[in-house]
Amino acid sequence: MSEIVELFLFLEPGANPDEDRVVQNFGESESLLVWVPDGTAAAKVAAEEVARGVRLMELYRGFDLESAAQVIDAVDGRAAVGVAGFGFGIATARPIRDSATIFVGHPSADPAVHRVTRAHAGGGRTTAVAAPDSAAAAAVALELVGHGAELIEICGGASLLAARDVRAAVGDRVAVSLVSWPVDSIERAAAFKADFDAAH
Rank of each mutant, 00 (worst) to 15 (best):
M1P: 09
S2R: 08
I4F: 07
I4G: 02
F8P: 00
L9A: 09
P13K: 07
P13D: 09
P13W: 14
N16K: 04
N16T: 05
P17W: 08
D18Y: 11
D18L: 11
D18K: 07
V22S: 00
V22C: 01
F26L: 06
F26N: 01
G27A: 05
G27Q: 06
E28W: 08
S29W: 11
E30C: 06
S31N: 08
S31A: 12
L33H: 05
P37G: 05
A41K: 12
A43N: 06
V45K: 01
V50P: 02
V50Q: 04
R52K: 15
G53A: 10
G53W: 14
V54C: 02
M57Q: 07
M57R: 04
M57F: 07
Y60N: 05
Y60D: 02
R61M: 08
R61Q: 06
F63P: 04
D64W: 10
D64A: 06
L65Q: 13
E66K: 15
S67W: 13
S67D: 12
S67Y: 14
A68Y: 10
A69E: 11
V71F: 12
D73S: 12
D73Q: 15
D73W: 15
A74P: 00
V75F: 03
R78T: 01
R78W: 05
A80Q: 06
V81M: 02
V83N: 07
A84C: 13
G85K: 09
F88D: 08
F88V: 14
F88M: 13
I90L: 15
A93P: 01
R94V: 02
R94C: 00
D98G: 02
D98M: 13
S99I: 11
S99Y: 10
A100Y: 10
A100E: 13
A100C: 15
I102E: 11
I102R: 07
F103Y: 11
F103K: 03
P107M: 06
S108A: 09
S108L: 04
P111M: 02
P111R: 02
A112H: 04
H114N: 01
R115C: 00
G122D: 13
G123W: 09
G124T: 08
R125K: 05
T126H: 03
T126A: 07
A131Q: 03
A131M: 03
A131V: 06
P132K: 07
A136I: 05
V140L: 02
G146F: 13
G146R: 08
G148L: 07
A149F: 11
L151F: 13
G157H: 13
A158T: 08
A158N: 08
L161F: 15
D165E: 14
D165V: 05
R167G: 10
A169Y: 11
V170D: 12
G171L: 12
V174F: 15
V179Y: 05
W181K: 04
P182M: 09
P182H: 09
P182Y: 12
V183P: 01
V183N: 12
V183M: 14
S185M: 03
S185F: 04
I186L: 15
I186Q: 15
E187I: 05
A189F: 10
A189M: 09
A190N: 10
A190L: 14
A191R: 12
A194I: 10
A198R: 15
A199I: 02
H200Y: 14
H200P: 00
